[in-house]
Simulated scan of single mutants.
Amino acid sequence: MKKDEGALHSREVLPTLQGLDLRQMTLGELFLEAISTGVITDGEMNWVTDHQNQFSRTEEAVAQRLGRLLDEGSIQLGCRVAPS
C-alpha cells in the first residue's frame, strides 16, 4: 500500500485480545479501542510500529496521539480481558 492511499481506511489483520482473536482492525479503530478501554496490547503496538511507514499524515497524527497518551499514563500497555 502506498503512503497516500492511507492505511487508516484499509483493513489489515491486527492481533487483539492477547493474540487470541485475530480480526481486521484499522488504526482508527485501534485508537478508539485504546481510548475506551485505557489499554493497548503489545501486539497492537507492534502492529502500529510495523506499519508506520505506510501511514498517511492523518494516521501519523493518530499514532503520535497514542504515544502521548501512553506517555502521560492515560493508556496503559497491557492486556484486555474479554467480556464475560
Rank of each mutant, 00 (worst) to 15 (best):
L27P: 04
G38R: 05
P83F: 03
R57F: 12
D50W: 02
A82P: 11
K2D: 02
L70Y: 03
T49F: 07
R11N: 07
G19A: 01
E44C: 11
S36A: 14
A61T: 06
L30H: 03
L77I: 12
F31M: 12
K2G: 04
E59M: 09
S84L: 10
R68T: 10
K2H: 04
M25F: 06
D71I: 14
K3T: 13
S56Y: 13
R57E: 12
K3D: 00
T26P: 09
L69H: 09
F55C: 05
A61N: 08
S10E: 08
R23A: 10
L66Y: 10
E5V: 09
I35C: 09
A63H: 13
Q64V: 12
L30K: 07
A7L: 14
L69Q: 10
L70T: 03
L66W: 08
A82M: 10
S10H: 06
T26V: 12
D42P: 00
G78N: 09
E33T: 15
L17M: 09
P15E: 00
R23T: 14
G28L: 13
L30G: 03
D42T: 02
L32D: 11
L17T: 05
S74N: 15
T26N: 09
E72W: 04
E33D: 15
A63V: 13
R57H: 07
N46Y: 09
A34S: 15
W47Q: 02
R65P: 00
A82I: 10
E12L: 13
G6L: 05
G43D: 05
G28Y: 04
G78W: 07
L69A: 08
R57P: 00
L17K: 08
R23P: 01
C79Q: 15
Q76E: 06
Q52W: 12
G38I: 02
P15H: 01
E60M: 12
S84I: 03
C79R: 15
L69S: 07
D50N: 05
R80L: 06
L77H: 12
R57K: 10
V13G: 00
L32R: 09
L20T: 11
G28S: 14
L66S: 11
R65S: 14
E72K: 06
T26A: 11
L66T: 10
I40S: 09
G43C: 04
D71Q: 15
L27I: 13
G73R: 10
G73S: 08
G6C: 12
L27A: 08
N46M: 12
L17C: 10
Q52N: 13
G19Y: 01
Q52K: 10
D21T: 11
Q64Y: 05
K3M: 02
V62G: 04
I35Q: 08
D21V: 11
D21Y: 04
I75P: 11
P83Y: 03
E44V: 07
Q54N: 11
D21E: 02
D42K: 06
D42I: 01
D71T: 15
P15W: 00
T49C: 01
S10I: 10
Q76G: 00
F55N: 03
M1Y: 00
L32E: 06
T58S: 13
G19H: 00
L77E: 06
G19K: 02
M45N: 08
G78M: 05
S74A: 15
D50A: 04
G28I: 05
L17W: 06
